[in-house]
Design a protein around this nucleic acid. Structure first.
Lengths: 212, 212
DNA sequence: TTGACAACAGAACGAACGTTCTTTATATTG
DNA sequence: CAATATAAAGAACGTTCGTTCTGTTGTCAA
């Protein structure tokens, strides 16, 4: 359900907002409005925003911005921005490796990183990692784990399990037909729960902050 | 114009979404919907989303979520989310895990991921990490580095330097009075720039996403 | 100089929307 | 078991919305 009719970045005319030369101006005004109000308003209000008097012309503009991939409609007909709506030309980033994505471009929008890490907000929780048992998986003490709560997981996934009334972050594995929790650090023992294993959630992301 | 009547994090009942116990559930459903469609739909549609049949009750719910600081209205009357809407609960691993579901309701720390990682939006850039040269620092290929752009750094900080027209992520160190770039992986060579060293920015955060 | 087209304006209309008021069902409490 | 509050349903209504169709103005090429 989280998928869009994904804007096609590979195709044609994305440097031009639409076939109309003034569309770039209209798009800018719409973007400015969106930064302030986080919504695309009614056609009547858009007349004000665009500085025109005709609702039908507003519709024509929006239709072109839709075709250009900047906005789209929900099944209910409401206009919403696409990813392309928030993109901006990357300044002087023609350097070879790892294009830096300008964060400034998405200012005013909160869920830039959130969007990347969290697909189901209501099922997602953050847990601070304690200890070094997952060091070899690049998960360190103090990191914040992004955990999607569910009770089942696949072999090889990193899970948050409940062992002795405590959260434990380990790789889920199987040994002799039984589930085991494998730390990613030889200094820690493999956990072999007798019988049932209670899984709290699955690791879907990781956040680390470097103190300065 | 971009400012809100900023939600007050220090005050009152922000662990409870509203006075109604089911409001938490309604809020979750609204958040899930928003991730998919980036808009708050009509009352009629919200009846579907919430699983109720009464528009007037939808209004009552939204009004309570408004009072609790999760949503607000534009001057035109349209509902929009506040920043509190995007905040995530932070569970503590020391929490007794008797009732795992209750972790959602864990009172105390909430945070917005973006705010945690990005302090200076205009100077912050995201760069995708390529290669394994920083593996021993828990930074893997495909991770996203949060980089604060500046031209100076301290010894021991992980920096993004520009070497041969390419970004390189390395630990800044000193050797015989000269700056060097030290990889955190013995398989890679230490970089010893002759003369000047161009620093692009300093690593302030890290984001990793696990594919499912 | 005209004719074609693009860029808008304006009106008209039915459907959808938000609001308010009234009613009903379910808990809670004393 | 009555009284009362809470949670939700339902109807009624004036307003607003998006759509469509038609009209106007400017521009530029033939």
């Amino acid at each position: 359900m989280t998928d869009y009719d994904s804007p096609d970045y590979n195709q044609t005319n994305h440097n031009q907002p639409g076939q109309n030369p003034k569309d770039a101006e209209y798009l800018n005004k719409l973007q400015d409005y969106y930064v302030d109000w986080k919504s695309i308003p009614s056609y009547a209000k858009l007349c004000e925003v665009f500085g025109i008097a005709s609702k039908s012309w507003v519709k024509a503009i929006l239709t072109r911005l839709d075709e250009a991939g900047f906005i789209e409609r929900t099944p209910d007909g409401a206009w919403i921005p696409t990813r392309l709506f928030f993109a901006r030309p990357l300044a002087e980033s023609s350097v070879q490796a790892g294009m830096p994505i300008s964060v400034t471009a998405t200012q005013g929008e909160y869920f830039v990183i959130d969007e990347m890490l969290i697909e189901k907000p209501s099922r997602t929780t953050l847990i601070t990692v304690k200890g070094d048992s997952m060091m070899d998986a690049g998960i360190y003490d103090g990191d914040v784990a992004v955990v999607e709560k569910r009770h089942t997981a696949n072999i090889g996934e990193i899970v948050v399990a409940i062992v002795d009334d405590e959260f434990t972050l380990k790789t889920l594995d199987r040994e002799n037909g039984e589930f085991i929790l494998r730390p990613e650090n030889p200094a820690f023992p493999v956990i072999r729960p007798h019988g049932k294993l209670e899984i709290f959630g699955v690791l879907t992301g990781l956040i680390r902050k470097y103190r300065r």
